[in-house]
Nucleic acid binder design. Structure first.
Lengths: 166, 166
DNA sequence: ATAATAAAAGACCTTTATTTCTTTAATGTT
DNA sequence: AACATTAAAGAAATAAAGGTCTTTTATTAT
């Protein structure tokens, strides 16, 4: 039960304390998706498969919520899956080369990288909003990273305990 | 009617096209708040006041929604207001020195600058998530700007047509 | 005092995002 | 063939954010 300072938007619902709430540039779905893809890429290879139950338990993501996300990843060719006993999710030939931006496109789209940070309809580089240039700098830095970083890289770094999936 | 690529989250509701939807690190409330504060700071000085109607018309923000935001800004001392005929909102002695982060604290809180980008509960610098360091870099760049930039600066830049409120 | 004006306040409604539940289909095992 | 297992699919529920409406209160002008 950690006490935090909340903005008016949040104060409404969590009046005095908050256990957990996500504030990010990205949706929860995206976070779950790249964690689950990396986990699957590391474990579901050479015929081995990872079941939804395993994924959801290991990664602490709600079972059915993750199910929908995995579904979407398979539909978009990021991963493969088989049904039935000993079925599950596994990496395909392109999984390791998947860039994070590919997954973001599936989960969140890329409006984040095209739209005005302040929600001004007619904001553009020639007629910038109050934060246009500053935000563009920050955002494009992130975009560059997402466009380059692959699941392979995340897997390697996880293997070396430089980063963590859980 | 612009056609855009949407993520699964959005695809649900806007099937084929989207007129306008905000994707940002910030809430709409924050965007409205800094635009309205800057506008008021520029026009509501030396006894002059800006009415809610004027603000909402000029800035194209829904009247009642902006009302709530202005209320909150006044309550937190960013602006002052008077009721009654010829009432309205106006800058006080500290308005011009208000930093953008002060307004963000009121509208969104600062969880954005403290929390894991992927929503991992136990992510921290020593046990970083897949994007921890990259996101920290991007985010802290933005934080630095918000912590330094003042309403005074936004007003001046608007005056010089370097940036735009509408 | 009365009427007019405009912000404050809070209840309420809508949209978007997240999460859960239930059913169906596919696959492998016996 | 019958059964167990597991993903797929989609409907439904819940939560959060965004936005609207109505009432109240304070102020000013007449």
């Amino acid at each position: 039960m950690t006490s935090v300072t909340l903005g008016a938007n949040l104060r409404h619902h969590y009046l005095f304390w908050v256990d957990y709430y996500l504030c990010s540039m990205f949706s929860k779905t995206f976070g779950h998706a790249i964690r689950a893809t990396t986990f699957t890429a590391m474990h579901g290879i050479n015929g081995a498969k990872v079941s939804l139950s395993d994924l959801s338990k290991q990664l602490e993501i709600p079972h059915h919520f993750l199910g929908k996300i995995m579904q979407d990843l398979v539909r978009n060719g990021i991963l493969d899956s088989t049904k039935g006993p000993h079925g599950g999710f596994f990496a395909n030939s392109s999984t390791m080369n998947t860039k994070l931006i590919d997954i973001l496109k599936i989960t969140d789209g890329v409006l984040l990288f095209e739209q005005c940070a302040l929600g001004m309809k007619h904001c553009n580089a020639k007629r910038p909003c109050l934060l246009h240039h500053d935000f563009a700098l920050c955002r494009d830095g992130m975009l560059k990273i997402l466009a380059v970083k692959t699941i392979q890289e995340l897997s390697n770094q996880t293997e070396d305990s430089q980063i963590f999936l859980i």
